[in-house]
Simulated scan of single mutants.
Amino acid sequence: MPPDAPVLPARRALAPRYWGAHLLMLVAVLACVLLGRWQLGVWHDHRSDNSAAVTRETPVPLDDVLGKDAAFPASGVGRPVVVQGRWDPGDTVYVADRTQGGRTGFWVVTPVTTASGSAIPVVRGWVTSATDTGVANPRGPASLVGLLQPSEDTGAPDNDTHDDVIPEMSVTDLLPRASYDLYSGYVVATDRALPSGGTQVTGMAGLAPVTVEHLPGADASTALRNLLYALQWWIFGAFAIFMWWRWLQEDVLGRRPSPGPR
């Protein structure tokens, strides 16, 4: 170009002597973003662990948490309870559209009649097909530790009330199928040992274990410091961008603000 031709702002800003400053800004912003995401992940992990802490409590008898005619207590979500009674294989049902390991299948649910005379639905495990003949329904005594869950009553329609498949794990949907009273919740079977040391009869043989879907929310203050650290790092990143932009405008491009009137 001619010697007296004006230098375009973009070309001036991208002159080799400024590359180091641009690179420093990019590294600083990237570091702030990554550190903020790391702290946010720590916050999320701590809250998830806090929610799941209830599942690691010592199991207690079912009726100590949920009476046969009682409404489901908020404190019962995810609680480990001891379920003892007798299996009722004739009332086994399958809950549709349950995802496990990226595949869609069914929960296998068999009620256990307890000494109270009422029955608690037990999610024994997961299968790919409701017609899987390789899974036998348990008979006789039941004795297991399960995680207590509230009934799923979203109102999903049951298009065929005469088959063994239901759209959700709803005690309301199970009532017309049962000849006995039902508890207001259900349990997800686990392979945890009984506190008494007795023999387990979990009904889980041949089935993939199920992970509970409902857990209590974490305390509001759980890992709050990590969330604030994440916000702090992102503010630092925004400040780095601001300082770089101001340096670019004033020192590189010479666009200093005009002084105000005196």
Rank of each mutant, 00 (worst) to 15 (best):
P6A: 11
P6I: 05
P6L: 11
V7S: 09
R11T: 06
A15W: 06
L23I: 13
A28Q: 00
L30F: 15
A31L: 11
H44M: 07
R47T: 10
R47W: 12
T55H: 08
P59I: 06
D64I: 02
G76R: 13
V77W: 05
W87D: 02
D88T: 13
R98V: 15
T99S: 13
G101M: 15
G102N: 02
F106L: 12
T113M: 10
A115M: 08
S118W: 07
A119I: 08
I120P: 10
P121S: 14
R124F: 00
G125E: 01
N137Y: 03
P141R: 13
L147A: 15
L147Q: 13
D153A: 01
D158V: 13
D158L: 08
D163I: 02
S170E: 12
T172C: 00
P176Y: 03
Y180K: 10
Y183W: 08
G185S: 08
R192T: 08
R192A: 14
T199I: 01
Q200A: 04
Q200W: 00
A208Q: 09
P209F: 07
T211C: 03
V212D: 03
H214C: 00
L215A: 13
G217C: 01
G217S: 08
A220S: 03
T222G: 05
A223H: 05
M243C: 01
W244P: 00
L253Y: 11
R256W: 01
P259T: 04
P259S: 09
